[in-house]
Amino acid sequence: MGFPNASGDLSSEMEVDAFRRLFPLQFHERHLAESIRPDGRPFGRARDTSIALGAVASANGSALVKIGSTTMLAAIKMEVMTPLLESPDEGCIAIDFHMPPICSPIVRPGRPAEAAPVVSKQLSDTIASSGMIDLKELSLVSGKAAWMAYLDIYCLNADGALFDTALLSAVAALSHLQIPAVSLNDDGKVVLMSEEDGEMVAKEPVNKEKRKLTLKSIPFSLTCLLHKNYILADPTAEEESVMETLVTIVLDSSSQLISLYKPGGSVLAYTSAIQDCVALTRQRVKELQSVLDEANSAMEVE
């Protein structure tokens, strides 16, 4: 990149792929000047999104989510714990985001990706502060037993907008979660109620039926990329690596702001740019809500 003019001269004779790799910024700016992105999307359009619920048979709730080619698998396993002293009537949710080495050439085994703990923390914060889940619903016996929901999200294919996909898969898995029916056994331990079990009368049921969590105000997010005066919604990994300023906005289903991240970057975000991002997120929330509703109603039909 030592010769700023070199790219201009070469671009006419160079192959597109070579130009893309050697002068990625110029390659993208050429597209932006024509009001289009390399994958053919207009600036404000997010990629196609799909949700498949119940992808993991061994989990209590699970979802496979794709935004473009970014793919994530979220699954919830319910375990029993003794509730904390300060909150005897509340269960707990432990959220973990994993980037295994299969998902991206940057991640190597034994050397975890830097992005993973950051996204993990953002997810926990967002889900806690959105008030989506009433932790009291996870209580079993006050002061004695409560549910611990382990929500693990695996990134299977990393192609940008990691937080958006992770949040959507977390929310989808929570909406698919079925809390199993359990009872107390003689040792005071909580065990699964088995249907063919004849001794059920002797046991004390704690949670009689399988049930779902009630989710209030579901959070949805959209990541936008700021570059000069352009705002690109839902960037791919390539766009994220070339232009580095990201803004992530999380709104709930009634368009209330839950959180806003702007982790540095070379572009300063002006009020108008942030407002534009929020407007894009509002549209996106409606899309995501309908995709999630569709996935849930498809499950009910089955």
């Binding site: 396993k77 319910m78 375990e79 029993v80 714990m81 003794t82 509730p83 904390l84 707990c92 949710i93 432990a94 959220i95 973990d96 993990s120 926990s124 889900i127 806690a128 611990m148 199993p180 359990v182 331990k189 909580v190 065990v191 699964l192």
Partner: peptide, 17 residues
């Protein structure tokens, strides 16, 4: 919300072991 290291309570699975 996510259990911090050290404060995470021990949990067990309700399925028969």
């Amino acid at each position: 919300m996510a259990g911090k290291a050290g404060t995470t309570p021990t949990t067990y699975s309700p399925s028969p072991t």
